[in-house]
Design a protein around this nucleic acid. Structure first.
Length: 271
DNA sequence: ATGGGCACCTGGCTGC
DNA sequence: TGCAGCCAGGTGCCCA
């Protein structure tokens, strides 16, 4: 489900509804997410005011007077802004009830998401401390990527999906960026030339930026906080297009499995 | 250190 | 129609 563009779209959607509001109540209907929602979390943030809504990789960081809520949408999570009285549906696990009468509602059928709290600097939290650079930051460069790839035999697709390489590139956008860069996904990372790493960095940045611009990709169930889908699916060149004609050259798109994830690519456009 | 594979969980789709 | 099997946007962790 949500990759970086969908998380960023979610962040932008919830931010104006949250910042400056007081959290009146935290309603945990189902604490069994990827990690159990801490029993003390509600007590720590109830009565505090939200001062920021940030994103690091695919984590959303809701900053309050008392500390930071760390929220991940996993594979199937989504956040909605609703009237606090709206009856919950299946998999509506947590509500943050605001003093505006609205609530932030976290729905996650597969429960791969999480909701944690830290009173300390969130960048030091164990889930965030080892994340590499943001792909949309200046620090993400072809030079740095190339240097890190030296001697690595791991496939370049797995390499760019590794959060120690660059943070927040998921399965859809890894395939799409490699298509745009003309790089075969199974190529060993260490064999990608210095110049092609520049192309790859630009492709990752472009594909993420474009996807954010149209609200992300909805494949099945992703919706933004207003309940609307993202429209990047129409712009996918390879993802879930196995057997279809490449939109650039007409060759049939191929699919193979890499580390239990489907990879899509064009054997003519990508070398 | 590196690379590969699994687990966590539900739901939707396919094919028999 | 029923049901088993497979697949899905993430990622931390374990193992060789």
């Amino acid at each position: 489900m949500p990759e970086l563009p969908e998380v960023e779209t979610t962040r932008r959607g919830i931010e104006p509804w949250l910042v400056g509001r007081r959290i009146e109540r935290v309603l945990v209907r189902e604490p069994r997410l990827r990690w159990r929602v801490p029993a003390g979390l509600a007590g720590k943030v109830t009565g505090t005011r939200v001062c920021s809504v940030a994103r690091r990789a695919k984590y959303l960081l809701i900053g309050t007077d008392a500390g930071t809520l760390i929220l991940h949408l996993g594979m199937s999570g989504s956040l909605r802004i609703l009237d606090a009285a709206t009856p919950p549906l299946a998999h509506d696990h947590v509500d943050l009830v605001l003093d505006s009468g609205r609530c932030l509602r976290f729905n996650d059928p597969r429960r791969f998401g999480c909701l944690l709290f830290t009173a300390a600097d969130p960048s030091r939290h164990r889930l965030l401390a080892n994340l590499a650079v943001e792909p949309l930051s200046e620090a993400f460069t072809g030079e740095a990527l190339w240097r890190r790839a030296r001697g690595k035999r791991v496939a370049v697709k797995a390499f760019i999906m590794d959060s120690r390489t660059v943070a927040g590139v998921g399965n859809i956008y890894a395939s799409e960026a490699l298509f745009r860069a003309g790089i075969r996904p199974g190529l060993a990372a260490g064999r990608v030339s210095r110049a092609r790493m520049d192309t790859l960095v630009a492709a990752i940045r472009d594909v993420l930026t474009e996807a954010i611009g149209v609200g992300g990709t909805t494949l099945r169930d992703y919706v933004n906080p207003s309940g609307m889908p993202g429209y990047f699916r129409q712009r996918l060149f390879v993802y879930e297009r196995s057997g279809k004609a490449c939109r650039r050259c007409g060759t049939a798109i191929r699919q193979f499995t890499q580390g239990a994830r489907s990879t899509y690519w064009c054997p003519h456009c990508q070398r």
